[in-house]
Amino acid sequence: MNNSQSNVNHEPLLQVKGLETAFSIEGKDHNAVDGVSFNVEKGKIVGIVGESGCGKSVMSLSVMNLLPKGIGKIRNGEVLFEGRNLEGLDDKEMNKIRGKDISMIFQEPMTSLNPVFTIGYQLEEVLHNHFKLSKKEATEKVVQLLSAVGISRAERIVDEYPHQLSGGMRQRVMIAMAIACQPKLLIADEPTTALDVTVQAQILELLQDIQKKNDMAIIFITHDLGVVSETCDEVIVMYAGRIVERTDVQRLFNSPKHPYTELLMGAIPRLEEEKDMLATIDGIVPSLTKMPEVGCRFANRCPKAMKECTTVTPKLAKNEEGHEVACLLYETSRPEEEVLR
């Protein structure tokens, strides 16, 4: 349907470069996303994990240009989609991309559907925005979309309202809406967090099917490392607005490097193993106004923190295997014995 744009050779689908998103609190700007850079390749699933308050959602809203006006703004950096900078675009042009090339699904399927319109109406709206379709064509397409996301009585659902559906069904409707225009990139912000495990399994299966069929890239934002391990190709671990670790999914689970990642993994009870005590991380993510100015933002909670951690800001550095980590423990310029402690 929308393969009109030619594929640029080996250029990542999405490039985020040095993104800084700030919120204005009492007249001062505070960076909720602080210098984040990453690429998403065509047809790949990239997971973004971290506790609440780590800037995962703010980052995705920045990409979509959906930050609350007057409060949040992009201070620095750029977002390139197929080589085109999204940041300079006005609302009208951005609307052509949102929903068509990049779309998004949210955590709470109840609050992201409008309660006073039928499911059919809301789906048709998306189609009308981007294509010229007759009423009949649009209805047919909607039924087709709903069947594609595994809703069995699609013809009847179109006339129903969101409250008549279960949580899993609503999330399917949201997915149908998001894939209506066959986007190249889907941003899924905690899409299964509000769902039961059995429904979560259905939705994950569905997303992976659609991803393969449409060769779509997905940014999968979640705090559930189990979900990441089953769905993603690459994982980004965020802490307090910065990327602390990035690598492919196997390497991350087999040899996590950043102390934060290690603790995060140790904190989760797992079905397949027995632990007496779970790892804990003392304290909480610092609030925006209390972010340390220099040094590693995890230093005050890190069990492996050294003196320099509060004065030197670690950079995200890549090792030979392509495993990126931002931690002084792994900075290569340091003497060998200190690296190993």
């Binding site: 069904m169 495990v197 979900v227 391990s229 089953e230 196997q250 689970f253 397949e272």
Partner: peptide
């Protein structure tokens, strides 16, 4: 079987996916 399992990365698991609600 529906619980995501971090110890089996890379392998396609046989998940029992229940139909319906």
């Amino acid at each position: 079987s529906a619980v995501p399992d971090a110890s089996k990365i890379g392998q396609k698991r046989e998940r029992i996916v229940l139909e319906g609600d």
